[in-house]
Design a protein around this nucleic acid. Structure first.
Lengths: 339, 339
DNA sequence: GTCACGCCTGCAAACGCTTCCAGCGCCCGC
DNA sequence: GCGGGCGCTGGAAGCGTTTGCAGGCGTGAC
């Protein structure tokens, strides 16, 4: 099963067999064919350990993610995996589930000798971590966020937020709530652009933001439901809500329905993502291409490995998708009619 | 950065350094401490290639999945990843996106020398593939499905289906449709138990199944929406629908809403999974623990690697979750009132 | 008919770690 | 006081590839 066996069967030295199999020049065609035939007959698979040791590479790309169950991550990982496979690289998956494993990861940098490149998926890092990361000695690519000066692919969070907010403002809403997503468990930076867009849009419309209309929660649907409850508890609740993700927005819609309020007649809701279930639940949203971001990150990583130049910062476009969860505000008098 | 450097700094031979770091007995405590200190100072990380080559293992577990964006897979992978990390194993991810990559995977068995064990996640294999798989020479564990006589963890699909169907029958439904999930692109076997449960439940209730009430589609919400459209087009549409997954069920609900029908007053819907968004959309369903299945599969793989005995077949329980999408059928006269 | 030059091929030395085997002290028991 | 044994350490041989270097042979040019 070893290269030596293949070489013996083909009647050549291991050196020649190696050259023949890995496509080096200066191997006679007839020899190459004989070696390949022998390899096929013996079902030979090179030991990646030995190859890696001799060549000083691993043939693997490490992917670091904070979550997997959330839609964006699964979709991005899917795109990334496809591209890496085409490039002949194996995908090593690291999930940093909590602050502890995150700390351990950046302290020990276990990927140091385990991969030829690292892709950070939806993972904002802080100053110290970036500094640590740079010592890893391999190429780093980020998707869904920016990481220092490393190549990255992401949406323009601010622009996406503006698309959502401008849509609501255009419909005539003046009192707009926002549900901000954060990741306290992982201490992940919240997408700053999505929040700044909220303030900027209000400012442009001449509206003074009410701090009570902004509530920060985790990324889950349940959190969204809870946040909406909080907003409904206000003396003067919003007529529209802009959520940082569809999953959160869907939670908000559920709370509204439970409260007997109609969407969008009583309260409009928009999210960000275009989650597959957003179409199913008629949720207005700002679509972002998740799989494509993963694919692009993969291509950038491969290009870096090949020594080709890579674009430092790629921004993929987002698109406002208007569905049934957003509409003009009702005349004040008709609001709060319990359906 | 190499073991030799660490050894030199600690004033011992590489052999002793190796033993000290990998926790072998017969190393003086003081020596061990000195080696560890040197390793820490030099930020030493062992080369997995070299270790693997010398030891004949890889320290990696390959995970094979057909999808990532679907909820179950992300959640199961999350649980699996956590357990493998605790066990000190790296996770190598293989996604078999279409029939072509599937074929290639089983032909070439690329994981052969790349991992110490293989976990198949939600991946039913056929006879030929199983035969190929057995030649891989490493332990195989399946989650979410059974694979030959290999250890596996999954729910009892038939029992889960019965929970859903019995619930609908108990509510008084007699004309029950079913949306069967399949994966034609990957040629994945549909979960037979979920279909047999449909027939068995009807039989027990003395109802002759109407072939027109059973429509087979892919796992996506969009498919569910389309399937529901088909069922609504029947001369005598069902009063309840049992879908093979929540994602499909949610698609079905969307079609019903669009058609102006009320859920559950006009048509009841139940799914399987307890997807996080099922709670948000008030969908009745049969809950299955996805993350737990991943965790168990991980533990089984680790146990196998440690040479410990592993339970051949583990079945995790499912649980009927009654929410707002299922209720008793309306008296015939009141049905089809366009809300 | 020579000579030089290329193509191919093989030898052997890495790559970085583990582990078998042997050796060296030291302690304990007689 | 002496021998056996045990605890600890080092030497060296792999593990399976790749690749620099050198050599053999054929070919074309002169």
């Amino acid at each position: 099963m070893n290269l030596a066996d293949v070489a013996r069967r083909a009647g050549v030295s291991p050196a020649t067999a190696s050259r023949a199999l890995s496509g080096h020049p200066h191997v006679a065609e007839v020899t190459r064919a004989r070696v390949w035939e022998a390899a096929r007959a013996l079902e030979y698979v090179a030991s990646p350990e030995a190859t890696g040791l001799a060549r000083g590479t691993t043939g693997r790309v490490a992917v670091v993610v904070p979550h997997l169950a959330r839609w964006w991550f699964g979709a991005a990982l899917e795109g990334l995996g496809t591209v890496l496979r085409e490039g002949g690289r194996d995908l090593l998956l690291y999930r940093l589930g909590d602050a502890g494993s995150r700390q351990a990861f950046f302290d020990e940098l276990p990927t140091r000798r385990r991969a030829d490149a690292v892709v950070l998926l939806g993972f904002g890092v802080d100053e110290r971590e970036r500094e640590r990361l740079d010592r890893i000695g391999v190429g780093i690519v980020a998707a869904g966020t920016r990481v220092g000066s490393h190549p990255s692919v992401s949406i323009d969070d601010h622009a996406a937020g503006r698309q959502a907010m401008d849509h609501l403002l255009h419909l005539g809403h003046r009192r707009i709530g926002t549900i901000v997503a954060a990741d306290p468990e992982l201490d992940l930076a919240q997408p700053a652009g999505r929040s700044s867009a909220y303030r900027a849009a209000l400012a442009d419309a001449g509206i003074t933001p009410d701090p009570a209309l902004s509530v920060t929660v985790t990324w889950s649907p349940e959190s969204g439901a809870r946040a909406m409850g909080e907003l409904l508890g206000l003396a003067d609740p919003p007529t529209a809500v802009y959520a940082h993700s569809d999953e959160i927005a869907l939670g908000a819609v559920r709370t509204l329905r439970r409260a007997g309020l109609r969407v969008p007649e009583d309260v409009s809701v928009v999210g960000i993502d275009d989650h597959p279930l957003a179409a199913m639940t008629d949720l207005s949203t700002v679509a972002q291409p998740a799989a494509e971001q993963g694919e692009l990150a993969g291509r950038m990583a491969l290009a870096g490995l090949a020594g080709e130049p890579v674009d430092p910062v790629v921004t993929v476009p987002t698109r406002l998708v208007i569905r049934g969860s957003s509409g003009p505000p009702q005349a004040a008098g008709r609001r709060w009619r319990r359906s």
